[in-house]
Design a protein around this nucleic acid. Structure first.
Lengths: 225, 225
DNA sequence: TCAAAAGTGTTAGATTTACACCCATGA
DNA sequence: TCATGGGTGTAAATCTAACACTTTTGA
């Protein structure tokens, strides 16, 4: 019954993760130097092979868990990258995913353990194979996504200042925003809640901390930043 | 050197094509009844396996050519679909592509030869496996694409009336547009050129035919419909 | 006392939306 | 002559973008 499959050859399938973080006002990604051939010592995304007994999404989740120790990370598929020679060692088709994590939640021991580090996306070194292309596409997709869904909060601590939020949007979109217009729009979104807490890290006066209220958003998801 | 690959298992990889057409004011897709198990006689997208010596994009182009006899079809990747049981016969990961073709260029003999037909997308029957999900995602992506790039012309004859163009946008977006506002915006786009030709197919008075001028567009791509 | 970040409204311009009638023609 | 689809402009409403000063406080 399954005989018609036999004419074709199977192929290795991997996943590669573009892990976005936000720190010190900059958008960052997590990359490391490859520890194996081919491409040893080249900067590379973190990835892994898709096992025969797991879905591609599961493979991506597993890979993200391996690297970060975190579950339930926000993750979206970027697409399949399938050039013949993209992996010099073997024919490998890779499916890229981007993920958004809060840098502060990330255990820095894990960074060392996996030999990865946060790199400012504007200062990305040359990457192995087609990984740069993956990053660029992921970045575009994330940029579009953040326009219509409040996914940016995944990159921030649960309490944040409006200046932090604005810097995040500026880093993602690559352009400066007007402070007054930005804050005006934030005020219209009920699911961005002001707390009574004040953060004095960046100013003597201190800035109010805000939080994202998912429940309020789910009830009335009118998002526009 | 390539020994680390050996721990993992290879997987069949296929491509599936969502072929969009536009006819009689409706958005259509090309589907057929499967001629093989598993899923025999279920409605299905047209697809094929990725060969070991071709890129995934090439596999999609080859598949499109097989089905339509056309080269240089507008085609974009939708994404990878990788659930374990998506193909009941074997583990197969499929990469979906959508394509835009002009129904009139399509040789209707080929329809029969491949056992496919144009189906109004609003009246799609249940589809094999995860094909419906592929179609939905493709449709969303195409809808977004057509907002910022003049890809709609791929679905029309090279000469078309403004009513046809409007119906196309209405079919894609699923909402009616105001005739005057639509034509006002068309007029602002220099790359939509009025010809002196008149089409009397749909009215006694006749409607002017327009054409898309790619060269003008490339020079000044300010698109907004 | 002053440097540095936080916070706050108004207005002009641009864009979007709503809307109704005449035209040309073949049947 | 009339039914049918083709073609045209204006005004109100909404949205967007530009812009500058006061507040607070720790050093």
């Amino acid at each position: 019954m399954t005989s018609f499959y036999l004419e074709y050859q199977k192929i290795y399938v991997s996943v590669d993760c573009i892990i976005f973080g936000f720190d010190e006002g900059k958008l960052k990604i997590l990359i490391g130097k490859r520890k194996m051939d081919p491409g040893r010592d080249e900067w590379s995304l973190y990835g892994g092979f898709v096992h025969i007994d797991e879905s591609v999404d599961d493979a991506a989740n597993r890979t993200l868990f391996e690297l970060t120790g975190m579950r339930n990370i926000y993750m979206r598929q970027v697409g399949a990258f399938g050039d013949i020679d993209r992996d010099p060692g073997e024919r490998v088709i890779s499916i890229a995913y981007y993920a958004l994590i809060n840098v502060k939640n990330y255990d820095s021991h894990l960074l060392q353990e996996h030999g990865v580090e946060w790199v400012n996306i504007e200062e990305m070194p040359p990457l192995y194979s087609d990984h740069r292309e993956m990053v660029n596409k992921a970045r575009m997709m994330m940029r579009e996504k953040i326009k219509t869904e409040p996914v940016g909060f995944r990159l921030l601590p649960s309490l944040f200042t409006l200046t932090q939020l604005q810097r995040l949007y500026e880093a993602v979109n690559g352009e400066e925003l007007d402070k007054r217009n930005f804050r005006k729009r934030v005020k219209e979104m009920d699911f961005i809640e002001k707390t009574e807490l004040i953060d004095k890290t960046n100013s003597k006066r201190g800035a109010f901390l805000y939080r994202f209220n998912r429940r309020v958003y789910d009830e009335d998801p009118n998002f526009k930043l």
